Amino acid sequence: MGAGRNAKNAAIALLVPLPSILFYLSFLHHYTATGDGDSLSPLWKWCSHHPVLLANSLFFLNVNLLFWVIGIVQSSHWMIDLYWTVIPVLLVHYYATHPLAQYNWWRSRVVILMTWAWSIRLSHNYFRRERWQWGAREDWRFTDMRHQYGKHWWWVSFFSIYVSQQVFLTGICLPLYVVQSVKKPWNIWDFVAVVVCVCGIIIAYYADTQLHNFVTRNTKLKELGMPMVPNLDKGLWRYSRHPNYFGEQLWWWGLVVFAWNIGHGWTFVGPLINSMCLAYVTKLVENRMMKQDYRTEAYRLYQKTTSVWIPWFKSSPSAKDKST
């Protein structure tokens, strides 16, 4: 990937959220200027009364439409993958600064800090995987769908990538909204939520690091013409076939504990849908692994002895076969 294209993609990625940011800052300016908001125009008044609808409207216009147009022009929908790590940070600050926000100071600040930690961890993993390049490639699942839908991909991509991502992202981020809209004293369940969230971030970081080291080592072996290691079954991967997915789910469900603790357990719906989607992605990933001849046999054995998500002790292949 050339330096010019890399710089261009970096500039696009940094500038693309500006429409939403500038619109929101303009809204805050008008709201502050009127004192209590009673003299606002109908548009600004609507924005002040409907924080979740406003967030979804900005997402639709700035992400769904703008990202989609850029993806069509570039023939690559790479940017939504990167912005998975950024949008939750933007949302948590948006909900915390909206005029309707009311919250416990400690809970709000702890969740904001942890959301930044989660984002930095995921962003680091993204750029490390992409060799510190911006938009070098799009998600392999999008590439597969591009081939599957052919000439219809230009419009199918709008729904399959962007509209669906809005449902997932705004849904799993609903606990961030609740945390910034309910003022309830900090209690023991907040500590439990912090432990779950932090454990999720740490597990995902170490799992992704171990995976990155494994892929890097195999790449070097391939370049040297040497046999590649067929399967990663060391470290956290000894106890789970997808410990990085497990850590990511712990993070989102930890946020649900925050929301449940302040009376909004219904927000579990977002992470539940995301977990179900990730279960499907897990199946796609494992099918892809099985198609690689050099690792098929080893991975089949790995499936028989190792837990899918939740880390657990290995079982014997014979016992697994008898249970099936």
Score class of each variant (00 low, 15 high):
residue 3 A to M: 04
residue 4 G to P: 04
residue 8 K to F: 07
residue 13 A to H: 02
residue 13 A to D: 03
residue 13 A to Y: 02
residue 14 L to C: 09
residue 14 L to V: 08
residue 17 P to N: 04
residue 18 L to R: 12
residue 24 Y to F: 10
residue 24 Y to G: 08
residue 26 S to K: 05
residue 32 T to V: 11
residue 35 G to Q: 11
residue 40 L to T: 11
residue 41 S to T: 12
residue 45 K to E: 05
residue 45 K to M: 04
residue 46 W to N: 04
residue 48 S to R: 13
residue 52 V to N: 04
residue 53 L to V: 08
residue 54 L to Q: 10
residue 56 N to S: 14
residue 60 F to L: 14
residue 62 N to P: 09
residue 70 I to L: 15
residue 70 I to F: 13
residue 72 I to K: 14
residue 73 V to M: 13
residue 73 V to Y: 15
residue 73 V to D: 04
residue 76 S to R: 15
residue 77 H to D: 08
residue 80 I to W: 01
residue 89 V to Q: 13
residue 89 V to G: 09
residue 94 Y to L: 06
residue 96 A to H: 01
residue 97 T to S: 15
residue 97 T to N: 12
residue 98 H to Q: 09
residue 102 Q to R: 12
residue 104 N to M: 03
residue 105 W to P: 06
residue 106 W to P: 02
residue 107 R to P: 02
residue 108 S to M: 10
residue 109 R to S: 14
residue 111 V to R: 00
residue 116 W to K: 01
residue 116 W to E: 03
residue 116 W to F: 07
residue 118 W to L: 02
residue 119 S to G: 10
residue 119 S to W: 01
residue 120 I to F: 15
residue 121 R to Y: 03
residue 122 L to N: 01
residue 122 L to E: 01
residue 124 H to R: 02
residue 133 Q to H: 08
residue 134 W to I: 06
residue 136 A to E: 05
residue 137 R to I: 09
residue 137 R to H: 08
residue 138 E to I: 09
residue 140 W to H: 10
residue 141 R to I: 07
residue 144 D to L: 04
residue 147 H to V: 04
residue 149 Y to P: 01
residue 149 Y to I: 03
residue 151 K to M: 05
residue 152 H to Q: 14
residue 156 V to Y: 15
residue 164 S to M: 08
residue 165 Q to L: 09
residue 169 L to C: 10
residue 170 T to D: 09
residue 174 L to V: 06
residue 177 Y to I: 07
residue 181 S to D: 12
residue 187 N to F: 10
residue 190 D to H: 12
residue 190 D to C: 12
residue 194 V to K: 03
residue 200 G to V: 04
residue 201 I to A: 04
residue 201 I to R: 02
residue 203 I to Q: 03
residue 204 A to R: 00
residue 206 Y to W: 15
residue 207 A to G: 08
residue 209 T to E: 06
residue 209 T to R: 12
residue 211 L to R: 05
residue 213 N to M: 11
residue 213 N to W: 04
residue 215 V to Y: 08
residue 216 T to H: 09
residue 216 T to Y: 08
residue 219 T to C: 10
residue 220 K to A: 15
residue 223 E to S: 06
residue 225 G to V: 12
residue 226 M to L: 14
residue 227 P to R: 08
residue 229 V to G: 05
residue 229 V to H: 11
residue 234 K to W: 07
residue 235 G to C: 05
residue 240 S to R: 02
residue 241 R to G: 01
residue 242 H to N: 09
residue 246 F to A: 00
residue 246 F to W: 00
residue 254 G to L: 01
residue 257 V to K: 00
residue 258 F to P: 00
residue 259 A to H: 06
residue 264 H to A: 03
residue 264 H to S: 03
residue 271 P to D: 04
residue 271 P to G: 03
residue 272 L to K: 09
residue 277 C to Y: 15
residue 279 A to R: 05
residue 279 A to V: 05
residue 283 K to H: 13
residue 284 L to I: 02
residue 285 V to P: 00
residue 287 N to H: 12
residue 290 M to R: 14
residue 292 Q to V: 14
residue 293 D to M: 09
residue 294 Y to G: 05
residue 294 Y to F: 15
residue 296 T to W: 03
residue 296 T to Q: 13
residue 299 Y to D: 11
residue 300 R to W: 11
residue 301 L to M: 10
residue 303 Q to K: 14
residue 304 K to R: 11
residue 305 T to W: 01
residue 306 T to G: 06
residue 308 V to W: 15
residue 309 W to S: 08
residue 312 W to K: 08
residue 312 W to M: 07
residue 313 F to Y: 03
residue 315 S to F: 02
residue 324 T to L: 11
